[in-house]
């Protein structure tokens, strides 16, 4: 396949996926309309997670801390300092990046299972910190942002983030942007190096690459996307609480990415969408709906490790990034 043909197919697949999500807003009933905003924001989180797990081969069990860094970075700014939502969003994304680099400087000395446990421990410490500073964060109970605080003026027009249509399109913009970032990174020479690190770290080092620096950069971008998702989440839904920093929020992205396809660009979006509704449906039937999370995790690891897009790619569709 020529590079030009491959580029066209990649554009068609990912552009098509984005376009489909954009058009969904005109047919979705209110309830699902709101759900899709959640899904698109969480998919950005999944994309960020996948950059580290799927493309660099570093399995993190503590990504909730980066999501929460964005959530609290933006949420606290709006609540206590009345930041403009745009400023709060940038601050939240920056908080994710900053924390990721900080954690990376320490945690990237390990790999494999030790990296999983170290990230899990750091995330647990971050979660407990949100509980410890209860006076500021209000812990589990959390904080609600007012409608007034969630609107801002841009070039003379007021943009109200509680307005469903605005919210949907901004969430879509964020997701489309994140998809574009992922494609740019993954298809770039730098992405090639990340994949090489995943495939054979020692070989990559012996090709002259400073592997630690690439890993740190991957973790940084991963944290940035996770933080951006967290910041968008609090601005769109107006609530910030400790539960977003707890262990399940580190497990969810793993589940979304595994279901959609580890190391694929489109997979995490599809995984997030399917998993979101699976959990929603299970929630209607039983209060112990989290059993779905456990069962699907087990089934994926045992029988379907490549996930949806990954399995498609393995059937002779090697062009899929």
């Amino acid at each position: 396949m020529t590079p030009a043909l491959r580029a066209r197919r990649i554009l068609l697949l990912h552009g098509g996926l984005a376009l489909l999500l954009l058009l969904c807003q005109f047919v979705l009933p209110d309830y699902h309309h709101t759900n899709f905003v959640s899904i698109m924001v969480l998919a950005v989180y999944a994309l960020g997670y996948n950059l580290l797990v799927g493309y660099t081969g570093l399995l993190s069990l503590g990504h909730a801390m980066f999501f929460a860094a964005g959530l609290y970075g933006a949420g606290m700014g709006v609540h206590y300092f009345a930041w403009n939502p745009v400023v709060a969003f940038i601050a939240g994304a920056a908080a994710g990046l900053f924390l990721a680099v900080l954690v990376g400087l320490v945690a990237l000395r390990t790999s494999g299972v030790a990296f999983m446990i170290v990230t899990m421990m750091f995330a647990q410490a971050a979660f407990l910190t949100t509980l410890y500073f209860n006076d500021v964060t209000h812990g589990d109970e959390g904080l609600t942002l007012t409608q007034a605080a969630r609107s801002f003026a841009l070039f003379g027009t007021v943009i109200d983030l509680t307005n469903p249509a605005i919210r949907y399109n901004l969430a879509w913009l964020l997701l489309a942007g994140a998809l574009a970032v992922m494609l740019l990174v993954v298809l770039s020479p730098a992405g090639r190096v990340l994949i090489a690190i995943r495939e054979n770290e020692e070989r990559t080092r012996m090709l002259g690459y400073d592997v630690r620096r690439y890993k740190l950069a991957a973790l940084g971008v991963s944290g940035l996307l996770s933080g951006a998702a967290g910041a968008a989440y609090v601005l769109f839904f107006g609530y910030v609480g400790s539960s977003f920093a707890a262990i399940p929020y580190s497990i969810y992205p793993l589940l979304w990415v595994l279901l959609g396809g580890v190391g694929t660009v489109a997979g995490p979006v599809i995984g997030t969408l399917l998993m979101f509704y699976l959990i929603e449906i299970a929630r209607d039937y039983s209060s112990s709906y989290m059993i779905v999370v456990g069962a699907i995790l087990l089934v994926l690891v045992l029988f379907f490790p490549k996930g949806i897009i990954g399995s498609w790619r393995a059937r002779g569709q090697g062009w899929i990034p």
């Binding site: 730098a190 090639r192 090709l207 002259g208």
Partner: peptide
């Protein structure tokens, strides 16, 4: 992967 390293040796890593 090897050639890209060699050709880009003097560029910043990104």
């Amino acid at each position: 992967l090897a050639a890209q390293q060699q050709l880009g040796r003097d560029l910043p890593f990104w």
